[in-house]
Design a binder for these strands. Sequence first.
DNA 1: ACGTACGGGACCACCCGTTATT
DNA 2: AATAACGGGTGGTCCCGTACGT
Lengths: 208, 208, 208, 208
Amino acid sequence: MPKRSKKPVKTRDFQRTRQRILQGGFEEIFRRGFHGASVNAIIAHCETTKGGFFHHFATKEELGLAIVDELLSAMVRERWLNPLEQFENPLEGIVQNWKRVIADTPDAYIILGCPLNNLIQEMTHCDERFAARLKQVFSLWVDGVESQLAKAVTRGYMRKGAPLRQLAEFIVMSHEGAFATAKALNDPRVFARIQGMVHEVLGSYSTK
Amino acid sequence: MPKRSKKPVKTRDFQRTRQRILQGGFEEIFRRGFHGASVNAIIAHCETTKGGFFHHFATKEELGLAIVDELLSAMVRERWLNPLEQFENPLEGIVQNWKRVIADTPDAYIILGCPLNNLIQEMTHCDERFAARLKQVFSLWVDGVESQLAKAVTRGYMRKGAPLRQLAEFIVMSHEGAFATAKALNDPRVFARIQGMVHEVLGSYSTK
Amino acid sequence: MPKRSKKPVKTRDFQRTRQRILQGGFEEIFRRGFHGASVNAIIAHCETTKGGFFHHFATKEELGLAIVDELLSAMVRERWLNPLEQFENPLEGIVQNWKRVIADTPDAYIILGCPLNNLIQEMTHCDERFAARLKQVFSLWVDGVESQLAKAVTRGYMRKGAPLRQLAEFIVMSHEGAFATAKALNDPRVFARIQGMVHEVLGSYSTK
Amino acid sequence: MPKRSKKPVKTRDFQRTRQRILQGGFEEIFRRGFHGASVNAIIAHCETTKGGFFHHFATKEELGLAIVDELLSAMVRERWLNPLEQFENPLEGIVQNWKRVIADTPDAYIILGCPLNNLIQEMTHCDERFAARLKQVFSLWVDGVESQLAKAVTRGYMRKGAPLRQLAEFIVMSHEGAFATAKALNDPRVFARIQGMVHEVLGSYSTK
DNA sequence: ACGTACGGGACCACCCGTTATT
DNA sequence: AATAACGGGTGGTCCCGTACGT
């Protein structure tokens, strides 16, 4: 009979618990903001304890950073970047995917805003480590859009010579700005209107 | 020569003290966010006391609401709306004024973001009263831009039939989005780039 | 034309304001207890200001003492002692007057307890000056009842040799205890029951 | 000889700590009243910290309610009800036990009054939850006395047909009233005098 | 790995009282 | 005499984090 390995099960539990805290922390922070989300509320939300929490994350800030690094970056990829791969025409992909996200997102979520944008506005100016991580995720998004635009040029859907970086920045900015505006006016329809404007802008760079 | 009043600077002046608290509160909240700004820090910043503070504002929230109502709405008017009056062509006014604000704003302020946007992202989803006041200020801005666009049509600088409300929303969204992006990337030059994009969009509605 | 006297009207206003504060303070303290009644609430209740309040009373404690000295002692006299004078038989007076007070007092007041008793329980053990004044009012009551009992003996309604002081103490104690019990059980009928018991006790000392 | 446990006094002992806070809270509240007893004073009195305190009691009110439920009801049972069991004649028990309590209680405590009565007068009219719990303890006392009186009837020490509930109420009322009066007059001898009166009343219902 | 008793600091709110002003 | 701006100290609460225990 072989000697039992050193509790491989525990390792899985470790990761599961960590993920539960990460997810529960995300939800609390998304709803109440980083400052508004207390560690007590987070552990209640994800059914763990103080000990469990601080075993996995040294401080509340570390949890926040992990959420940015692991959850937000994944969300950007899954919601905004990966879906674009399925479109032959990246410009159309950007527009269609935006429409899809608008359709998928419940109106109730609109008022909560974009998790990434919320954290940027709340944390960037008062916590350098947050600023660095958030910048990374934001750049990831812009980079991803820019490479799609480059692909659009390569495939002949977009005029050569267009300022790709600038356009990519503009497109991501519009997403965040649309979320912010819809949140400010508490009106989900803002979304579609702004998306329409961006559509036009992209059209002006399209080869038709 | 008239008799000088005995005390050129009155200490027991309700309005002056109130304004001092309002201004000091604004600066603290701008730098640290509403939750991050403690009443202790605010009173230290504007040289008053607990008693003085709560004599003027029943709660910290009331101070925040007063800042939105009185300071932020005034800032929107003074920085974004009133200057447009001086331009014969409102479309040019919007672009030029934006350039002016970019030039006027120290780079160090970029990272702090837009006071209005910061509060919207932090407070809208967790405080109904804030949400209502912030929406009011945001709408004031959109309304102001829209009426400029209407003037542009009247004066013949802009094509008839353009979707004025949608455009106004887009323009204000771009301002907020530009602030957010510059903050996220910690790069003031983002500003000019986004402003350039908006310039183009406006150009496409211009009668040239 | 005679020189005007030195503002006699002002003197009346002074006393009126003082009485208003005294009365408003009494009501607030009666409802919320001395510690629970804030100066701010008191001045709001009697429509004066901080300045007005502290002009008339150096401290909140002074107001409390004045209430004991002036209002509570007057209430004891008017409600419990003076009415007894109208009875030929003091023993019957004590019983009948108690019945009258029970009938006069709205049930809603029962839960508030006896103003004198409330203050005694709250203040005696933590404020010597209160203790002294409250003792004075309480003694006034006992003395008054004792002299009625003496009169009852003189007039032949009560057996000679009865322990008058002890009886007087017992009677006043019953009043306070009845208030306390009715308050504890939130049941006004307790009053009548205890009054009945005291009636019997008095009966046993009566000459019939 | 059994192995001694490593730590004879555990610091991290929930129940012990809780009892310490409960006891320390009781003493502070007994001396200063509920409003007068600050959490800071309580934790200093029982050597714990803010964190420790609020780990055990969510609010100061919760501590107060626990004191009523757990300490005061126990005190009523131990001091006033249980001792009666040892008497063959319950009527004599009531009188003798009262005398014993008078003899046992240091004069210095008299001025502090009865903890139960103090809380009733201070809290009943301004806190519903306190009112309910205090009523419960008070009723417990009256019920206990009533059942003793019933036993006295059964055993033939008391006349049949006596109004037991009314008598029980009267007896408890006398205890509280005696405390209140002794406190008001700052004179412990009042106690014995009132106890004498009650003795007589009971005597009139006794079968001798 | 996780549970929980505990530490102490900081939060906002409100207190009572003072003082400049009318 | 009366008003209201103002002073600070302290109130209860809740915070994040530690460390003991299993």
